[in-house]
């Protein structure tokens, strides 16, 4: 089926199979930051923004993105660097394999929630698994990032 999907601002028109997950579609467009960590929609590694909302690109079929805007970490390089620097300064990226999906959801959260509490942050990001860090350094990084954003 022929679809037109905008990935990080570039419009692509392709004839794709209806069962192609958005994850594989964006990887085929060179967005290799998007990772797959499971087959059961549980890990959050594949998080991308679909019309600005964080979704699991493993579960959304590419046909569903027809006519819509998809954003991956490659499309948010500047924001990724800004938050990523805080994460790096805590050592909170560790193996880095979950970082792209995690950062995509942190950026979505920063847009969606005003002044979130630690509990709200934890809840928003609960769908992003990480096996390396125990999550504490990530929370420290988010706190510092949100404070720096507020202070402008």
């Amino acid at each position: 089926m022929v679809v037109t999907i905008t990935v990080n601002g570039t419009k692509y028109t392709d004839d794709i199979s209806p069962d192609l997950p958005l994850l594989d579609y964006v990887r085929s467009k060179g967005c290799l930051s998007v990772k797959r960590g499971c087959e059961t929609s549980n890990c959050g590694l594949c998080t991308v923004h679909l019309d600005g909302k964080p979704v699991l690109s493993c579960s959304v079929l590419a046909v569903r993105a027809n006519g819509r805007q998809v954003t991956t970490l490659e499309g948010l390089e500047e924001e990724a660097r800004a938050f990523g620097a805080f994460l790096a300064d805590e050592g909170g990226e560790q193996c880095g394999f979950c970082s792209p999906g995690f950062i995509m959801n942190v950026l979505a959260m920063a847009h969606e929630l005003d002044d979130p509490t630690d509990e709200e942050i934890r809840e928003y990001l609960a769908g992003n698994l990480c096996r390396c860090t125990g999550y504490q350094s990530q929370l420290r990084a988010i706190r510092k990032y949100l404070t720096s954003k507020k202070e402008g």
């Binding site: 549980n42 979704v55 699991l56 959801n105 979505a108 959260m109 809840e123 769908g127």
Partner: peptide, 12 residues
């Protein structure tokens, strides 16, 4: 719904 996986899952 708050316990169901995570925000990205619930957006789908």
């Amino acid at each position: 719904v708050r316990h169901i996986v995570g925000v990205q899952f619930r957006n789908c």
